[in-house]
């Protein structure tokens, strides 16, 4: 492995901790979707620790940046990141997917602090993000100063916030997503970044054995979006793509992030079996924790 500078080393550590949390949660629940959670780890690490103005202190502020996990089934990685940021205790992991738990099988904004949207029905989180971004540009609110809406997160915005959403590659099968791509370009939502977690697998099989997804970059560009292609596990490329998106005016950005399903856990990588509905057995759990650098802390 190449020698990394300290900043990147820290992100790598944070990412590995997310992987540990994902495996731990997956084992507690006995089910869930580890494969697609692991592929989004680096992107979410960078978003939560570097890119976004979003923390436990401001998550109810109307000016916070929004993160929407449109591929809601990968909520293990979202819960891991929220726990890492201090939104709740890792003890909650034990009750994931169990009755009376705070952590649902798919995200629930009313049950879990820090969750923006009840995603999981594919395509909807992306459209929800577009709505947030349109509201964030507040082209229609700016004129109204005497508004007195009566709910908590309703105030005059002093700052245009940014919206980040992760879409699954399988999710791109949904027609609603393409309605959304047209909408985003039409409304010039340059405060929105959509990241496609392109791990090449969906629920049953390789994307390419399910429908004709490619050529994705051509599709995105023809829909009027600024499109970038990166290695979704490379922090430098992630950072640069977000910088480019921030500088761009007049159109939304979509980042096609090439990732590996099950990334970082040797026996899960590129194995469609680990999409969902199962968890590592005893030996597998030890191996998985070892793979993400936590060999010694097996309970």
């Amino acid at each position: 492995m190449e020698k990394k500078n300290s900043k990147e080393q820290k992100l790598t550590d944070l990412a590995q901790e997310l992987r540990k949390h994902i495996i731990t949660m997956n084992c507690h629940a006995g089910s869930g979707h580890p494969g697609g959670s692991l592929s989004a780890v680096e992107i979410i690490t960078f978003l939560f620790h570097k890119e976004m103005n979003f923390s436990f202190d401001n998550y109810r502020s109307p000016e916070r940046d929004r993160f929407v996990l449109s591929k809601g089934h990968a909520c293990l990685v979202l819960y891991a990141a929220l726990a890492q940021k201090g939104f709740f205790d890792t003890k909650e992991f034990e009750k994931l997917r169990h009755v009376n738990g705070m952590l649902q099988g798919h995200p629930d904004r009313l049950k879990t602090p820090g969750v923006e949207f009840n995603s999981g029905s594919l395509g909807q989180g992306f459209s929800f993000s577009l709505g947030c971004a349109l509201g964030g540009k507040r082209t229609f609110i700016s004129r109204y100063t005497n508004t007195k809406p009566d709910y908590t997160n309703q105030n005059v915005l002093n700052r245009e916030f940014r919206v980040y959403t992760i879409i699954g590659d399988g999710e791109l099968n949904e027609g609603q997503v393409w309605e959304g791509f047209m909408f985003g370009a039409f409304h010039k939502l340059d405060n929105l970044v959509a990241i496609v977690d392109y791990n090449k697998y969906q629920s049953d099989d390789l994307n390419s054995n399910i429908t004709a997804l490619e050529p994705l970059m051509d599709k995105f560009r023809s829909f009027g979006w600024y499109a970038l292609e990166i290695d979704g596990h490379n922090f430098e490329q992630i950072e640069n793509s977000f910088l480019e998106a921030r500088a761009l005016k007049g159109k939304p950005t979509v980042i096609l992030a090439h990732t590996v399903k099950g990334k970082g856990i040797s026996f899960m990588e590129n194995n469609p079996k680990w999409h969902g509905s199962l968890c590592p057995s005893g030996d597998e759990k030890i191996q998985a924790l070892k793979d993400c650098g936590y060999g010694e802390c097996v309970e």
């Binding site: 909807q124 947030c132 229609f140």
Partner: peptide
């Protein structure tokens, strides 16, 4: 379909 979910997002922004 997009319109319904867009509305949900908008509702979090003060309108």
């Amino acid at each position: 379909q997009n319109m319904m979910s867009v509305a949900a997002g908008l509702s979090t922004t003060g309108v």
